[in-house]
């Protein structure tokens, strides 16, 4: 494995007595799609929020692109090239779809006081933003208010923003939840296309079938601990994973077996 783009070591997050994440370690290699899987309350989103800077880990180490990043705030991580989406979509509702992407394009300017005074509606910026919208299939809706879009398109809009910011890695937080079947298929195609661009993806997924199809490798969490890691085929046949999802087989219930 080449130098990982993201390395998480022995990560802990405790909320009072609740150990939401309890000693999780994994690595993401450049160019791969790594899925984090697990039943509800397994600690996936908490893990994600620590990686993207929303939570500060109780203990442990996060190394992103060769730099310790645990405890850095979200906007600093974004500046380092980490883009993310949200499980509950967060569009800039009263701005247009195009403006939503332009906000993300400002990533190159927000950090320097001298550069925040430049105009954002320039031709170059709009063209670059339209290219991104084209990639996610929202170019037709560029002038529409983001707050008026249906969920599937909002998920694409968040992916567009994440693509602009996430030069090195993008985190997708349950992008498939709440979508209809046809939308799921189209979103799968989009994520495959993103992989084709050579962008590294870390995704949280609840839906087993989707993640089996998309991911190169999968890490399974349960009760804040990693219970399995490997290729989708390996995960599918892992007994502990099956138990976590379907429950333990009741051995004494012979009549039913």
């Amino acid at each position: 494995m080449s130098e990982p783009i993201l390395r998480v070591e022995n990560l802990h997050k405790h909320f009072g007595g609740l150990k939401a994440v309890n000693g999780v370690s994994f690595q993401v290699a450049p160019g791969e799609i790594l899925g984090i899987l697990g039943p509800n309350g397994a600690g996936k989103t908490v893990c994600f929020n620590m990686i993207s800077g929303v939570y500060k880990p109780t203990a442990g180490k996060i190394v992103f692109d060769g730099q310790r990043t645990d405890g850095l705030p979200p906007h600093r991580l974004a500046a380092l090239g980490l883009g993310r989406t949200f499980q509950i979509v967060k569009p800039f509702a009263s701005l247009t779809v195009l403006e939503n992407v332009l906000v993300a394009r400002g990533i190159a300017n927000y950090g320097r006081f001298g550069r925040i005074w430049g105009p954002w509606r320039s031709k170059d910026q709009v063209r670059a933003a339209m290219e991104v919208l084209d990639k996610v299939g929202l170019a037709d809706l560029a002038g529409r208010k983001a707050g008026l879009l249906p969920l599937g398109n909002l998920r694409r809009l968040e992916i567009a923003r994440a693509l602009v910011v996430g030069r090195k890695l993008i985190l997708l937080d349950e992008s498939f939840s709440g979508l209809r079947h046809a939308e799921i298929t189209r979103l799968e195609d989009l994520i495959r296309a993103i992989r084709q661009m050579g962008i590294t993806v870390l995704l949280i997924e609840h839906n087993l079938r989707v993640s089996m199809k998309l991911c190169d490798r999968i890490v399974v969490l349960e009760h804040g601990r990693k219970i399995a890691e490997g290729k989708p085929e390996q995960i599918q046949s892992d007994l502990r994973v099956i138990e976590a999802y379907l429950g333990r087989k009741r051995r004494n219930n012979a009549a039913g077996g």
Binding site: A78, F92, V165
Partner: peptide, 26 residues
Amino acid sequence: TRCWAGLACFALREDEEAAASVGISP
């Protein structure tokens, strides 16, 4: 309203967490 600083403020007004995720320091 036409410079990046203003756009960053609009984004903050709409959603602080999303704004931070695209590099805007709230």
